[in-house]
């Protein structure tokens, strides 16, 4: 599958899905005008790809500064899907990057990560 690279705008994050290396990243702020239209195509591609994967390592990086409620729903859905994929036997590592002084983003990461049963979840503070 071709890699997906979408550059960030004022309202939407960078999306970097590298299917060759199994490294996927979402970075920036997320409050697009039409959240399903923005996330729909790359996440559908990701889901089709991971549906066909049953082993190996997959790394997923989230580095978000701000996101709205609809984007949060997309993240939760994605977390569920990644956890399901991990249950199939794929080693999924989810890295949640947040600025070390951003308590809000840290708490959100903890909440999102607490439901994961099979995928590994790592909180990764970065210097502000």
């Amino acid at each position: 599958m071709d890699n997906i690279k979408i550059n960030r705008t004022e309202r939407s994050p960078d999306i970097d899905f590298n299917f060759q290396n199994n490294v996927f990243s979402i970075r920036g702020e997320s409050y697009p005008e039409d959240v399903p239209a923005f996330f729909g195509p790359p996440i559908s591609s990701l889901e089709s790809y991971l549906d066909g994967v049953s082993e190996g390592n997959v790394e997923f990086n989230f580095e978000l500064i701000y996101f709205n409620s609809t984007s949060a729903k997309v993240m939760m859905k994605l977390f569920d899907f990644l956890d399901e994929t991990a249950r199939k036997g794929v080693n999924i590592a989810i890295n949640w990057f947040y600025e070390s002084d951003d308590d809000n983003m840290e708490e959100l990461g903890i909440e999102f990560g607490e439901d994961l049963e099979a995928a590994a979840f790592n909180l990764k503070p970065i210097e502000a």
Binding site: S69, K73, M76, D80, N104, L108
Partner: peptide, 20 residues
């Protein structure tokens, strides 16, 4: 149960964003 959890989480997120 999952939906209920999501709603609570989204409400908390919304509250945090509003406070910010």
């Amino acid at each position: 149960g999952k939906l209920f959890k999501s709603v609570k989480r989204l409400m908390r997120l919304s509250d945090r964003n509003e406070q910010k």
